[in-house]
């Protein structure tokens, strides 16, 4: 277990980690706003919209992410007629899968955040003559985001680890390179290195969210 060996595998593994980070960034940047919109749809007074959003969330949370990824990568192209238009690059397909799945989780987190807000907040806004839009944007949503922050942080850490599912759809990422090296060199060192790289990523992420929580403590 020499330093030289570790250095020699570190190059390809960090390259794999780039894929992991890229997927993470794409997924988080799109699924959070999407989850927010989904939460609005769930809370909408337009019944069909609310019902569809509910169903969507139920399906996404009720089935394994791995199944969804396999479905998008390998299932969609097999559909009759439309299938041929649904062949994506594996990485793109994986991004779509992660976004669709995580949006459902974020929607639930945001919904919980809204529900946690005391009804006195709406009443105070009403007696101060604020309209529904002003109340939502200036009173409810800022508090919702603050309440949701710890859960969002938690979900983001899960996302970092879930990126390893790229392995299953054969996109070369961190874990893929580790596995290759393990098979080739008959040593578990690459797994340890991969573990440490994941830990560093989740540590940085956790620190970022801790900073956000501190920044928006309202004390």
């Amino acid at each position: 277990m020499s330093i030289d060996y570790i250095l020699s595998i570190l190059g390809p593994m960090l390259e794999g980690a780039q894929m992991t980070v890229l997927l993470f960034l794409v997924a988080i940047v799109i699924s959070i706003p999407l989850g927010f919109l989904l939460m609005l749809a769930v809370r909408s007074s337009i019944k069909p919209l609310s019902w569809m959003a509910h169903t969507y969330i139920y399906v996404m949370r009720g089935t394994p992410l791995l199944l969804q990824l396999l479905f998008i990568c390998f299932g969609l192209p097999m559909l009759p007629v439309v299938g041929e238009y649904l062949v994506f690059d594996r990485f793109v397909a994986a991004c779509i899968g992660f976004i669709l799945n995580y949006a459902a989780y974020f929607a639930e987190i945001f919904r919980g955040g809204v529900l946690a807000i005391d009804k006195g907040q709406y009443e105070a806004a009403q007696v101060l003559s604020m309209n529904k839009w002003q109340t939502t944007t200036r009173v409810i949503l800022p508090q919702m985001f603050r309440i949701a922050l710890p859960a969002v942080a938690n979900e983001s850490v899960t996302l970092v680890k879930d990126t390893a599912l790229l392995y299953a759809v054969a996109v070369p990422e961190l874990l893929h390179f580790a596995q290759t090296a393990v098979n080739r060199d008959f040593t578990i060192v690459p797994f340890l290195v991969a573990g440490i790289i994941y830990l560093i990523m989740t540590l940085l992420l956790t620190m970022f969210f801790k900073w956000l929580e501190q920044r928006f403590k309202f004390e």
Partner: peptide, 14 residues
């Protein structure tokens, strides 16, 4: 009319 509540209902984020 203005109203003052038992539990204040101040906006905690402001």
């Amino acid at each position: 009319m203005g109203m003052v509540f038992q539990h204040f209902n101040l906006f905690p984020h402001l």
